[in-house]
Every structure is written in structure tokens, then in C-alpha cells.
Measured scan of single mutants.
Amino acid sequence: DNLVIALHSYEPSHDGDLGFEKGEQLRILEQSGEWWKAQSLTTGQEGFIPFNFVAKAN
């Protein structure tokens, strides 16, 4: 599964970004460059996240 966990909170700064809290679990939908499309397992919302704010969940 493409599950990751947030290492830091992220406040969206552009339309289409997905905000999240530290410790939140996300599902990665697309990996492309430094911005990945993800879905929050907490809110169900989708958007782009900075890849270096998350780590693979085990």
C-alpha cells in the first residue's frame, strides 16, 4: 500500500495543495517530482503534498 505518515504539519499555500497535521496518515495516489498527489485518511480530501514532509508507514 502507498501509505505514508506526516513527519511535519503542512499548511497549504496554493490551490490544490492538501494540508495535514503531523502524524496524519495519507495514501499516495501519484508520485511526480517534489509534489505528490495524496489523499488524507483522516479527512478523505485529496491534493498535492511536499514529498519531504512524509515517510513510508510500516
Rank of each mutant, 00 (worst) to 15 (best):
D1M: 07
N2W: 05
N2P: 03
N2I: 12
N2K: 09
N2G: 06
N2R: 07
N2S: 11
L3R: 10
L3A: 02
L3H: 05
L3G: 02
L3Y: 11
L3T: 14
L3K: 06
V4Y: 13
V4P: 03
V4A: 15
V4W: 15
V4L: 13
V4F: 13
I5D: 05
I5Y: 15
I5A: 05
I5P: 04
I5E: 11
I5C: 10
I5Q: 06
A6M: 04
A6C: 09
A6T: 11
A6R: 03
A6D: 01
L7C: 07
L7N: 04
L7I: 12
L7P: 06
L7F: 03
L7R: 07
L7K: 09
L7H: 06
L7V: 10
H8V: 09
H8D: 14
H8W: 08
H8A: 13
H8E: 12
H8T: 14
H8I: 08
H8L: 08
S9I: 01
S9T: 13
S9D: 12
S9Q: 08
S9W: 00
S9K: 14
Y10I: 04
Y10H: 12
Y10Q: 07
Y10C: 06
Y10T: 04
E11I: 10
E11R: 11
E11F: 09
E11Q: 09
E11C: 09
P12Y: 05
P12S: 07
P12G: 05
P12A: 06
P12M: 04
P12F: 00
S13W: 08
S13M: 13
S13T: 15
S13L: 14
S13D: 13
H14Y: 10
H14V: 12
H14R: 15
H14A: 14
H14F: 10
H14P: 02
H14K: 15
D15S: 10
D15T: 11
D15G: 10
D15C: 10
D15I: 09
D15Y: 12
D15Q: 14
G16V: 07
G16K: 07
G16Q: 08
G16W: 15
G16H: 11
G16D: 12
G16E: 08
G16C: 09
G16L: 08
D17H: 14
D17T: 08
D17N: 10
D17E: 15
D17S: 13
L18M: 08
L18P: 02
L18D: 02
L18K: 00
L18F: 06
G19W: 02
G19I: 05
G19Q: 08
G19L: 04
G19C: 10
G19Y: 05
G19K: 11
G19R: 11
G19M: 07
F20T: 06
F20P: 02
F20H: 01
F20L: 06
F20V: 09
F20R: 00
F20M: 08
E21Q: 14
E21K: 13
E21C: 09
E21F: 05
E21D: 09
E21Y: 06
E21P: 01
K22A: 10
K22N: 02
K22I: 05
K22G: 03
K22V: 09
K22M: 05
G23E: 02
G23K: 02
G23D: 05
G23N: 13
G23V: 00
G23C: 02
G23H: 06
E24A: 07
E24P: 01
E24Y: 02
E24S: 05
E24I: 02
E24H: 02
E24T: 02
Q25W: 10
Q25A: 10
Q25M: 14
Q25I: 10
L26M: 11
L26R: 03
L26G: 03
L26Q: 04
L26W: 01
R27F: 06
R27K: 11
R27W: 06
R27G: 01
R27T: 09
R27H: 13
R27S: 05
R27N: 05
R27Q: 15
R27Y: 10
R27D: 06
I28H: 00
I28R: 01
I28P: 01
I28W: 00
I28S: 04
I28C: 03
L29S: 06
L29W: 01
L29H: 10
E30H: 08
E30G: 09
E30A: 11
E30L: 04
E30W: 05
E30Y: 07
E30C: 08
E30I: 04
Q31P: 09
Q31V: 07
Q31W: 10
Q31L: 03
Q31N: 13
Q31K: 14
Q31I: 04
Q31E: 14
S32H: 07
S32M: 08
S32F: 06
S32E: 15
S32K: 15
S32Y: 12
S32D: 12
S32P: 06
G33Q: 02
G33I: 05
G33A: 06
G33E: 05
G33M: 02
G33V: 01
E34V: 12
E34K: 14
E34F: 11
E34S: 13
E34Y: 13
E34R: 14
E34P: 10
E34N: 09
W35A: 13
W35I: 13
W35D: 06
W35S: 14
W36D: 04
W36P: 08
W36V: 12
W36M: 12
W36E: 01
W36C: 13
W36S: 06
K37D: 00
K37V: 09
K37M: 07
K37W: 11
K37T: 08
A38G: 05
A38M: 03
A38H: 00
A38K: 00
A38E: 00
A38P: 02
A38Q: 01
Q39C: 06
Q39A: 07
Q39H: 07
Q39M: 10
Q39W: 02
S40R: 12
S40Q: 04
S40L: 05
S40P: 02
S40M: 01
S40E: 02
S40A: 06
S40H: 11
L41I: 13
L41C: 12
L41P: 07
L41W: 00
L41H: 02
T42K: 15
T42D: 10
T42W: 09
T42I: 13
T42N: 15
T42L: 11
T42G: 08
T42R: 13
T42M: 12
T43K: 03
T43Y: 01
T43P: 01
T43A: 04
G44T: 04
G44F: 06
G44Y: 05
G44R: 09
G44H: 07
G44N: 10
G44L: 08
Q45N: 08
Q45H: 09
Q45C: 11
Q45V: 10
Q45K: 12
Q45Y: 07
Q45P: 04
E46F: 08
E46N: 09
E46V: 15
E46T: 15
E46G: 04
E46D: 05
E46Y: 07
E46P: 02
G47M: 01
G47N: 01
G47Q: 00
G47R: 03
G47W: 01
G47E: 01
G47H: 02
G47K: 03
F48E: 08
F48M: 13
F48A: 09
F48K: 15
F48Q: 08
F48T: 11
F48D: 04
I49T: 04
I49M: 03
I49F: 06
I49W: 00
P50Q: 01
P50A: 00
P50L: 00
P50S: 02
P50V: 00
F51H: 13
F51E: 14
F51V: 13
F51L: 09
F51G: 15
N52C: 07
N52K: 14
N52E: 14
N52M: 09
N52H: 10
F53P: 01
F53G: 06
F53V: 08
F53S: 15
F53H: 10
F53W: 12
F53K: 07
F53Q: 08
V54I: 06
V54D: 00
V54S: 02
V54H: 00
V54M: 03
A55F: 07
A55G: 14
A55W: 05
A55Y: 08
A55K: 11
A55T: 14
A55V: 14
K56W: 12
K56Y: 11
K56Q: 10
K56D: 11
A57L: 14
A57P: 13
A57N: 04
A57Y: 10
A57W: 11
